[in-house]
Simulated assay, not measured.
Amino acid sequence: MRVVLLFAFLSMGIISAQASAPTEAEHWQTPASWSAQTLARYQHLLGTLRCLVCQDESLAASSAPLAADLRRQIQHKIGQGQTDQQIRQYLVDRYGDFVLYKPPFKPLTWALWVGPFVLLLLGLLVVWIQARRSRRPHPESAGLDARSLALSEQLLSDDQGEDRR
Rank of each mutant, 00 (worst) to 15 (best):
L49K: 01
Q55G: 02
M12H: 13
S11I: 05
L100C: 02
W110L: 14
I74H: 03
A111F: 12
L120N: 02
A40E: 14
W34C: 01
S148K: 11
G47P: 00
L45W: 00
R132I: 02
C54K: 06
I15A: 11
L156R: 12
P104D: 06
Q55I: 07
Q18W: 04
A131D: 14
S141G: 04
S157T: 07
D84K: 02
S148R: 12
E153L: 11
Q160W: 07
F117H: 10
R71K: 15
Q160F: 13
P104W: 11
Q73S: 10
V3L: 10
Q89R: 08
S33V: 00
L59Y: 04
I15Y: 05
D69N: 11
R135A: 15
W113I: 02
T23S: 09
P65E: 07
T83K: 05
A36K: 04
R50S: 00
L5D: 05
G123K: 02
S58P: 11
L149W: 05
A19E: 06
Q86G: 07
Q18M: 10
L6Q: 14
S58D: 07
K106I: 14
Y101T: 01
Q29A: 06
T30V: 09
I74S: 03
S11C: 12
R164L: 14
L149Q: 12
R165K: 01
Q18A: 10
L119I: 13
K106W: 00
G123N: 02
Q37G: 03
L121C: 06
L52I: 03
P65F: 01
L151D: 00
L112S: 08
W28C: 04
H44N: 11
Q55T: 13
E153C: 07
E26W: 09
I14R: 07
L5C: 12
R50K: 09
A17T: 08
P107F: 02
L125F: 14
A21K: 11
F7D: 15
L144A: 08
V3M: 02
A67M: 07
Q86T: 09
L155Y: 05
A21I: 08
L70N: 07
L5Y: 09
L155M: 03
E24F: 09
S157D: 03
T48R: 05
Y101I: 09
G96E: 01
D159E: 07
R71Q: 08
D56L: 11
L151S: 05
L91F: 06
G47S: 01
S134F: 14
P22F: 07
V4N: 11
E57N: 06
S35P: 04
L125M: 15
L125W: 13
M1N: 08
E140M: 15
R133W: 12
M12A: 14
P116L: 01
F117S: 08
P137N: 01
R135D: 12
P137C: 08
R147Q: 13
L155F: 06
S58Q: 06
W113Y: 15
M1W: 10
